[in-house]
Design a binder for these strands. Structure first.
Lengths: 340, 340
DNA sequence: CTGAAAGCGCTTACAG
DNA sequence: CTGAAAGCGCTTACAG
């Protein structure tokens, strides 16, 4: 390995001081073009590569942010991550990514390692069993601004879908179809779950439609989780008019398990879900789903964080933003008819 | 903001020297437990957070690697990225992610910013129009080891699917079905494309089956790209017995466009593709696809890079690894019957 | 086993 | 407009 070329080498070759060379690298206008050109030539000659980490140490900012999500096989998370990248990339940030796999311990470990690496800010889609106190302590101790995405805890900046609204739209749709009972399946305790349930109850119960949603109907956010939840539901002995999945991934398992038991989704039981990832429209029958617009969540969250970073994380109060959902009605509910 | 707590503060509080404190942070056994305990107490008291970037500057390694992929909406890329994370996380690395969107310029910009941030190594799924010389120059100047994933250029470490083999399996299957003509659609010039085409020709042409694959049948790796490619194919006036898509994403568009033109995939024309992401099995009819095992590609690529990093990037010759593919036969080809 | 000093590659006041 | 010096927070020889 050739020894590393430093700014000192460049400045010597160009016949100027280190400070002058430093100013040139950063494009300062205080340096006359003639001097700057000499420095740039020297950089090219020597094959200089800027060591931003060294600069960071001095400036105490890294132009780096951390993004922690559950995983990215779920297209909802993938689109959200890409949107974050889009915004932060344009702002000159490079992003550290970590996948918590919805394990709070792994999540904290990831955050710790990002903090050690001096991230300027953090965007987190929190694991359901996150301890908010612990999280607050961890980021506050380091003075790193944090915005939560998609799932919220009080006291943190947050951008997510307006789940109550989305669930209300869905509930009204099902009530209009004449549903008398709805089972809400899958997901783990998180604000998104609570909010969706709230919207469903609010829109269905006043219309005389029962909402079944108990702890035993929760599940991991996987197709298998959905299948298992349906099984537990059917083992209770009663079939609802409609099944609402926590999201599209869970719904896939619900379709599968229903068919294994000889029930056709959309005909025997209406089925709907949340997120409206590309999975939903691709199902057979196409799945009614509440679009959550992860691109908007990610983009808005990134902007919110950028704002805090720009303001030196001053006394901006906690920021909240809700993205408006949209109900996509497809045949998994539209073709269902109440049994007479 | 409270002023940052440094190792110096800790050492003073613990009544030892900075070097001793440093040794304790890194768990050196040279420090007696009694001293170490005092230091650790001081760290807790003061709320010390390790500044790994400062350490990096001194040690000239960052325990950071860069991963650059096209995007992650395609589950193939998502699974690959997660597999890389799995391996590198366990080895103590944190990963910078960048999405090239298959734009060579953006790719180089991303790599440059990662290099400035002192990544120890780079994993790249290269954009099709990458200039290999330029890439080599960029990473060699910085002395950063690089492994290519899924698409190769000569002279770089590489892990990818054995595309020739996979395409051969698929070609043999189609030949056995009695196909007399096959159109290969979608994708952009890349080793993966060339290799797939090679395998198809090798297995089909000797069996009297034509392979149509020209520049005008290429397309972006999107459903729209697939639709457009089918349109261009049909505009040529002849229908093949089978259409092979560059991958599952392209195949989605092929299904759509065929139906728009009144042709049923799997009945009127057999359809198959590559990658076998969860998209394939979820299609109607289920899509025959050559599984490329992105988890294995990602994991093996990460291991390869870790090896180079462990060996101080010594004179290990270029490393190559091919992952064995597997043909998943589904009804999009299995139910097709030659017209008599 | 522990401490004082130098140095990683930059930037930042401060002089001139 | 440009230079010499100090410092960001660590680690690394080197003494003792």
């Amino acid at each position: 390995m050739t020894p590393r070329i430093t700014l000192e080498d460049v400045s010597k070759a160009a016949g100027v001081s280190k400070s002058t060379a430093s100013l040139v690298v950063r494009g300062s206008s205080r340096i006359p073009e003639s001097t700057a050109a000499k420095v740039r030539d020297a950089m090219d000659q020597l094959g200089y590569v800027y060591n931003r980490s060294a600069a960071n140490l001095r400036q105490s900012r890294s132009m780096t942010i951390g993004l922690v999500v559950t995983e990215i096989i779920n297209p909802y998370f993938a689109e959200l991550a890409m949107a974050v990248d889009e915004i932060t990339h344009d702002a000159g940030y490079t992003i550290f990514i970590g996948y918590s796999r919805d394990l709070a311990d792994r999540q904290h470990e990831i955050i710790a390692s990002m903090i050690e690496r001096q991230v300027d800010g953090l965007l987190l889609l929190p694991a359901p069993d996150t301890d908010p106190q612990k999280l607050a302590k961890q980021v506050n101790a380091a003075g790193v601004p944090l915005a939560l995405l998609a799932r919220r805890f009080p006291g943190f900046d947050y951008v997510g879908s307006n789940n109550v609204k989305g669930a209300t739209l869905l509930g009204e749709h099902l009530a209009a179809l004449g549903c008398r009972s709805v089972a809400f399946l899958g997901g783990r305790s998180a604000s998104s779950l609570t909010e969706r349930e709230e919207g469903l109850r609010k829109s269905l119960e006043p219309n005389g439609c029962e909402v079944w949603s108990s702890d035993e109907l929760r599940s991991p956010i996987t197709p298998e989780g959905g299948s298992d939840a349906v099984s537990r539901l059917f083992d209770l002995g009663r079939l609802p008019d409609a099944i609402i999945a926590y999201n599209d991934i869970v719904a896939q398992g619900i379709y599968d398990e229903m068919r294994r038991r000889g029930l056709e989704p959309g005909r025997d039981i209406a089925v709907a879900s949340f997120d409206d990832t590309r999975i939903a429209a691709g199902q057979v029958p196409p799945l009614t789903s509440v679009a959550g617009f992860p691109q908007q969540v990610g983009a808005k969250g990134a902007e919110m964080l950028m704002t805090r970073l720009a303001d030196g994380n001053a006394d901006i109060p906690t920021q909240l933003a809700l993205i408006q959902p949209q109900l996509k009605i497809r045949s998994s509910t539209a073709t269902w008819r109440t049994r007479t």
